[in-house]
Simulated assay, not measured.
Amino acid sequence: MAMPEPAATGGTSAEPGKCVPPARPEVERLKAYSAPLEGRRGMLRLDFNENTIGPSPLVAQVLRNFSTEEIAVYPEYDGLREALVQNLLETGCRPGLLPEQVGLFNGIDAAIHAVFQAYGSAGETLLTTSPTFGYYTPCAGMQGMTIEAIPYQGETFDFPLAAIQEALAARAPRLLLICNPNNPTGTRLPADQLIALAASAPGSLVVVDELYEAFTGDSVLPCADFTATPNLLVFRSLAKTAGLAGLRIGFAIGHADVVDRVSRVTGPYDVNSVAVAAAFAALADQPYVDAYVAEVLRARDWTLEALRQAGVRHHCAGGNYLLIWPQRPVAEVDGALRREGILIRPMAGKPLIDGCFRVSIGTTSQMQRFMAAFLPLER
């Protein structure tokens, strides 16, 4: 029996009468995660929670001095894990962390993908929350996993702790993935409760995505004991605070055996030499990162007060972003701000928050520019 031709997914069509070879059934059913990344140059980018001023001058200097010889050879990672461990210890991580407990990845997206490849199988369950970072779902779908997404609660989007505990006890999911603080709601769960969740479910890999923890100080690393809870894995990145989003480098931190298994499904040179050099420089300039985070927190306070005074509905609980419910349709506000050179992220179709938009928090002057363009739209 002839196999039906799969639905078009972009690219060049096959010649008439010829069939494109189908991918795995899980991939054929998959809706790929995509983000509108084109047309952003020269704009005030408040749409993807990036560092809005750029990396440390040390990073810029390293990139300017990067040699053609370094470009021509495969990357070397000697010392990078040690540098990250030292940075983590200096910023409050529990003593005793070893370099073999750190995995290197081509951005956190690659780390997420690797976790699902290493631990997720068809028919098994991913337990997570909703709404949350959109890339978890397609990664689970690639493996044919069942997704159980428990919604945040109420107008303040409280963490559904009791429901998560019940699901862990009743269904023993293969993976529990929690973004903390959560993107986009900012919802936070204290470190001791996250560790307790891992301790209660030794058969589940509990992954805590901490890309935004620097803006709240909610990390589990100061109190995590990976010997006692070897099923706990933590994601960190240099994208949101150190300004290396364009170079793609992320870390997974946990028990050495878990890090080893997640790393097995990656390529030997997935992290490129330029990213490695930039990471060394960024880790060597923690005061720059601290100063940027402090400025974002000042700008957040200024923005929240301006929104309160203007009577604009908003929600901000953690991270370098907040949610705003405008009086006009979000698409109209998005278009008007884009014409002013400002980018935001509409939350259309997101459960619980459809009808609002997320705006990243930059510097105080950048947020003043945003508010000067946004508030007239509310009148």
Rank of each mutant, 00 (worst) to 15 (best):
P351E: 04
A114I: 06
T156E: 15
G96M: 00
S237Q: 08
V85I: 08
G54V: 12
L58P: 08
G243I: 09
A279K: 03
L97K: 02
K18T: 14
A348Y: 09
V258F: 05
P160R: 09
E50C: 01
T266F: 04
Q143R: 13
A32Y: 15
D47C: 11
F66Y: 14
R171Q: 06
N320S: 08
P4R: 12
G103H: 02
D209H: 14
G42P: 11
F226S: 07
L84P: 10
G154R: 06
R248F: 13
E15Y: 11
Y119V: 02
S237R: 03
T146P: 04
L189D: 06
L283P: 01
L375K: 07
L232V: 08
A163M: 13
K18D: 09
P376H: 08
A35M: 14
I164A: 00
R188H: 09
I178R: 04
D270M: 02
R313E: 13
L88V: 09
P21V: 05
A372C: 11
A122Q: 07
I178A: 03
F105R: 04
R45A: 07
S34H: 13
D78P: 02
D334A: 11
Y119P: 02
A275F: 03
P95W: 08
L63E: 13
L177G: 13
P21W: 10
L176T: 06
V206D: 02
R236F: 10
S237G: 12
G42E: 13
S130T: 15
T216W: 06
L176H: 03
G319T: 11
I253N: 00
G203R: 10
V289I: 15
I353S: 00
A282L: 00
Q153L: 15
Q366N: 12
G335V: 03
L63W: 11
G217S: 12
L352A: 06
A331P: 10
R171H: 04
G42Y: 11
P181L: 08
A72M: 13
G254H: 09
V258K: 03
A111G: 09
T68S: 04
L98Q: 15
A32E: 15
Y152K: 10
Q309K: 12
F357M: 00
M347P: 00
Y74R: 09
D78C: 07
D192Q: 13
P173H: 02
T129K: 01
G134C: 07
E378T: 10
A275N: 01
L37T: 14
P326F: 05
L247T: 05
L232H: 01
K18E: 14
E28F: 10
P202L: 04
L126I: 09
C93K: 00
